Amino acid sequence: MDYGVAHTKDVPVTDLSEIDELPPDLNIRSLDDVLGLEKMNAKLWYLEPGEQIGYHAHSEQEEFYYVIEGTFSLKLGRSGEEEVREVGPGTFFSAGPEIGHGYRNVGDERGVVLAIGTPPVHDPGLDPHALD
C-alpha cells in the first residue's frame, strides 16, 4: 500500500452481532480494509449508552485510541493495578502488549472511538487477570 484516502461515510458499517467469531456485538467501520493497511488495524467503534469493550489484553498488539464523541469510563493497567478514569472527546489513551484495557460508554449519547493497533493481529484478547 502506497497511500489511501477515504471519508467516513464511504466506509461501510459492519454489525459485529452478525459475526459469531467477533465479539462484542457493536458496530464498526474497518478503516484498515478500505485503506488497504497492512501493518496496523484501524477501526471506528460505535458504542450506544451502556455498551462496552470489556477489559482485555493482547499478546503482541499495542493499541492507541482517540475519543471522537461520547463520555467513557476507561479501565487501564495490569491486573490488580487498574486505573479507572472518565474521559470525553479529544482524549487519547493507549495500552501496550499484555496490558489490560477496556471502556464503557457512560454518557447519554452514542460514542465513537478510533482504535489503531499494531501489529495487525486479530486475537480475541487475553484475560489480564491470567497474565499475573
Rank of each mutant, 00 (worst) to 15 (best):
M1C: 11
D2F: 14
Y3H: 14
Y3E: 11
Y3A: 12
V5A: 12
A6G: 08
A6Y: 09
A6S: 15
H7I: 10
T8V: 11
D10R: 15
V11G: 08
P12V: 13
V13R: 14
T14S: 13
D15H: 04
L16M: 13
S17N: 09
E18T: 15
I19R: 15
D20V: 13
D20Y: 13
L22W: 14
L22P: 08
L22Q: 13
L22I: 14
P23M: 14
P23R: 14
P24T: 09
L26F: 06
L26K: 10
N27C: 10
R29I: 11
S30Q: 14
S30G: 12
S30H: 15
D32C: 07
D32S: 13
D33P: 06
V34M: 09
L35G: 06
L35M: 10
L35S: 05
G36C: 11
G36Y: 14
K39V: 09
M40H: 10
N41Y: 10
N41S: 14
A42Q: 06
K43M: 14
K43N: 15
K43W: 13
L44H: 12
L44V: 09
W45D: 10
Y46L: 03
Y46Q: 04
L47T: 01
L47N: 01
P49S: 04
E51Y: 04
E51H: 00
Y55S: 00
H56W: 07
H58E: 08
S59I: 13
E60M: 14
E60P: 06
Q61L: 11
E62L: 06
Y66P: 00
Y66N: 01
V67A: 06
I68L: 12
G70H: 01
F72K: 00
F72H: 05
F72W: 01
F72Q: 02
F72V: 00
S73R: 15
S73Y: 00
L74F: 01
L76Q: 05
L76V: 08
G77D: 05
G77E: 02
G77H: 03
G77S: 07
R78L: 10
S79G: 09
S79Q: 07
E81C: 09
E81I: 04
E82G: 04
E83L: 08
V84C: 02
R85G: 02
R85Y: 05
R85D: 13
E86H: 03
V87G: 02
G88S: 11
G88M: 04
G88T: 08
P89V: 06
P89A: 15
G90F: 06
T91C: 05
T91Q: 03
F92C: 07
S94E: 12
S94I: 03
G96M: 07
G96I: 07
P97R: 07
P97H: 06
E98R: 15
E98Q: 15
E98G: 07
I99C: 07
I99S: 07
H101M: 02
H101I: 03
H101Y: 06
G102F: 00
G102T: 02
G102H: 00
V106Q: 00
D108F: 03
D108M: 09
E109A: 12
R110T: 09
G111D: 00
G111N: 02
V112H: 06
V113E: 03
L114P: 07
L114A: 14
L114H: 09
I116C: 07
I116S: 03
G117W: 04
P120V: 04
H122V: 10
H122T: 11
D123F: 10
P124L: 15
L126H: 04
D127C: 05
P128A: 05
P128W: 02
P128D: 05
A130M: 12
A130P: 03
